[in-house]
Structures are given as structure tokens and as C-alpha cells.
């Protein structure tokens, strides 16, 4: 399904930039697997590696939006599979809290996503990126970007 989304895009469309924080053990390896398996996905995602999704400070997300990202994605190990036992549970809690905060700031909920991607789920990573790109394309550029442009 998501391959279709990928195929359908046209060159003239708005291309959203996604910042993806991936944990080293599951999700980064999963993204590597998508690469070694030559699974094609949308090119406007930029990956930042952290050891655990639990390392992702709320400020990282805010910084990403402030710097002009149209969406932020956090990927970690599946619940129960965390390399550090429970880091991903902390991520999950912070994610829900931060989503509320972002909405209050005018950043739509869909711009900030959390996904569990294991080291064997290369296909899933590609799908997550494609789907999010598709969603963001519809949403248009981040309102923060516009504001910053106006400030400058």
C-alpha cells in the first residue's frame, strides 16, 4: 500500500522534511536493514542516531521544529524489547505529554509520531517513513517554518 503512496508523488509537490530519532539497537538497525534489502522509501527523512529512544529530550523535538522540520519521528524497540529494559516506556510517556504541548503551540498532532521498529523490520521502517511523508504532504509546511520566515 505504502509503495503506492511512494509512487504516486509528483515532483511539483511540497516535500516535507522529517527528522527521525532512531535508537541504536532496534530501529537504526532496522533502517539499515531496509538499506541492505534495497527497500525504497521517501528521501526527505533525516536520521539522527541515539543509543536509546529514551535519550530523546523533549527539547530535541522542539529544536527540530524550531529549525524548520515539518515532522519529527521517534523510533524505538518494541515494548518489552528495549535494550536498556525500559527506556522506550519513558519515551512513550514523554511522547504523549509532548504531543499535547505541541498541539497547544499550534503544531498538529500528526507532525510528531512514535513508532516501534525492531531490527528485523526494515519494511516497517520504510512504510512508516512513506506514510508519514504522505500525511505531511497533505498537511503542508510546518507553521513554525512560516513564522520563522516572517520573523526573518
Amino acid at each position: 500500500m505504502n509503495d503506492q503512496i511512494f509512487v504516486e508523488k509528483s515532483k511539483t509537490e511540497f516535500e516535507p522534511t522529517i527528522i527521525a530519532f532512531l535508537c541504536n539497537w532496534c530501529s537504526y538497525t532496522g533502517a539499515d536493514l531496509a538499506g541492505t534489502s534495497r527497500m525504497k522509501y521517501e528521501p526527505h527523512v533525516r536520521v539522527i542516531r541515539v543509543m536509546c529512544s529514551g535519550r530523546v529530550e523533549p527539547a530535541f523535538v522542539l529544536k527540530a521544529f524550531a529549525e524548520g522540520a515539518d515532522g519529527v519521528l521517534i523510533c524505538g524497540c518494541h515494548p518489552g524489547d528495549c535494550h536498556y529494559h525500559s527506556g522506550n516506556y519513558k519515551t512513550l510517556r514523554r511522547y504523549h505529554l509532548l504531543t499535547k504541548y505541541l498541539e497547544q503551540m499550534g503544531i498538529q498532532k500528526d507532525r510528531f509520531q512514535l513508532s516501534w521498529v525492531s531490527a528485523s523490520e526494515g519494511r516497517l521502517f520504510a512504510d512508516v517513513v512513506n506514510t508519514m511523508t504522505h500525511v505531511l504532504r497533505k498537511l503542508g509546511p510546518s507553521p513554525i517554518r512560516e513564522n520563522i520566515r516572517n520573523l526573518a
Partner: peptide
């Protein structure tokens, strides 16, 4: 070295070697 404590620190006192705040920024 998971860095979960760093992300939770409300006063910015905690930091993680090689995954420091300014490096990620």
C-alpha cells in the same frame, strides 16, 4: 549509556558523553 536520565533531567544538569545536547543540536 542509554541516556534516559539525561532526557528526563528538568534542569539540564545531566548529559551523556558523545551524545551531548550540543552535539545532537
Amino acid at each position: 549509556g542509554c541516556g534516559t536520565c539525561v532526557a528526563g533531567c528538568p534542569s539540564g544538569a545531566a548529559n551523556q558523553n558523545h551524545f551531548e545536547r550540543n552535539q545532537i543540536y
